[in-house]
């Protein structure tokens, strides 16, 4: 994956809806909890960020509320191919 793709955020978001997840960068996270506080489904996004794991919750809508509200840019949409990676 090349980083130039970061600019294609709309396309990325659409792809993410099907094949991706919200992904944290835990080194940026201070566990403030704005993400979990604003999740409409009540997913504990912050706990995923602590473990540096993608939000692989089956009910995640990838609505982007947590991505937009995070004051430190911890969260992003990304195509993760979690299962493909696990298989490697």
């Amino acid at each position: 994956m090349s980083f130039i793709n970061i600019f294609k955020s709309d396309a990325r978001r659409r792809t993410t809806l099907f094949a991706g997840h919200v992904v944290p960068d835990s080194s940026r996270c201070v566990q403030c909890g704005i993400c979990s506080y604003n999740c409409p489904i009540g997913i504990d996004v912050r706990a995923h960020a602590w473990r540096d794991e993608a939000i692989n919750h089956s009910e995640c809508l990838t609505c982007g509320e947590c991505v937009a509200r995070c004051p430190r840019g911890v969260l992003r949409f990304d195509r993760t191919d979690l299962f493909a990676k696990d298989a490697q």
């Binding site: 201070v30 566990q31 403030c32 909890g33 704005i34 979990s36 506080y37 504990d44 912050r46 706990a47 602590w50 509200r69 004051p71």
Partner: peptide, 23 residues
Amino acid sequence: YSRPGLAYFLTGELADKSLFPKT
């Protein structure tokens, strides 16, 4: 609890009970 999060509690972006990361 998240001490850095106190800044966002002050602005009203989250409630104080949300500052606690662990269950």
